[in-house]
Amino acid sequence: MILDIVRTAALEGVAHGFFGREGGLFQGPAAGLNCGLGSNDDPAAVRANRRLAADAVLPGCGLASVYQIHSPEAVIVSEANEGQPRPRADALVTDRPGLLLGIVTADCAPVLLADTEAGVVGAAHAGWRGATAGVTDRTIAAMLSLGARIERIAAAVGPCIARSSYEVDHDFADRLLTADESNERFLSSGPGDRPRFDLEAYVVARLAAAGVRRIEAVGLDTYVLADRFYSFRRATHRGEPDYGRQISLIALAPA
């Protein structure tokens, strides 16, 4: 089965991938590699899709994920938890080789991070709530607690909704500017004077402000690229009854 996997130069040598919707077991609105346990699809089929993705990165290795709540919470994990209760958080970090970390998105920004010298990796789900609350900062802090060093961490920001597709309300824009006037660079005016928000650029800036020196953003708009990616906002605008989620994975290869 052919899967659409976006890999990055920033994480070269690290087992990782940002997956699209191609391949998988579903038809209908969530057709393809839907990996979201929160969708209306058959949970067994979703788990099968997650296994397909995991095996495309590190065959046979266990997968750890979180119950995502649009928060800044990051947890350290040491074992797989598929089929078990998952921590309520939006990022996870490990120093265990052979353990895949996975987060799912459908417009939010997936962020994968690694310090290969320390043997520490992380994965974060950065929607506007988590991103502005500091989910990437907490992910980095968790990595540092396991021995990573900020100057060695590399990060990649995967497919997410682009500024041109991301209309926000004035209240959000005002809060963003109140937090930091320099955030004006992530906002622009759209039709009807509604602000547009550049989530990808904001996440990159947060990573850089934290001290990450090597950052790559893939620049793929989940809203526009309907054949490649799931999008909550696109599904909402189309009045579709459900939407899928793509998965992003990273791991340290076992010795």
Rank of each mutant, 00 (worst) to 15 (best):
I215G: 01
I153N: 01
L177Y: 04
L113A: 03
S231D: 00
G211K: 04
V203K: 06
T139S: 11
A201C: 09
Y166A: 10
D180K: 08
M143S: 07
A141P: 13
A226C: 11
D169H: 10
L146H: 07
E151S: 15
R233I: 13
L225A: 06
Y243G: 07
R213G: 10
L199T: 01
A142F: 09
V121P: 01
D137Q: 14
E216F: 03
F172W: 08
C160E: 03
R213N: 12
R175I: 12
H170Y: 13
V168D: 00
V121S: 02
R194A: 14
S231Q: 02
R233H: 12
A126E: 00
Y230R: 03
G190D: 07
R233M: 12
D115N: 04
G211C: 03
S145C: 11
G122D: 00
C160Q: 07
Y230W: 06
S145R: 14
S231M: 00
R233S: 12
T116H: 10
A226L: 09
A148T: 05
M143K: 08
A179V: 11
V135Q: 03
D180Q: 10
R213P: 07
T132W: 12
E181P: 12
A208P: 08
L176S: 05
F232K: 14
V111W: 02
I153D: 00
A226I: 08
P241A: 10
L187F: 11
L225P: 02
D227P: 04
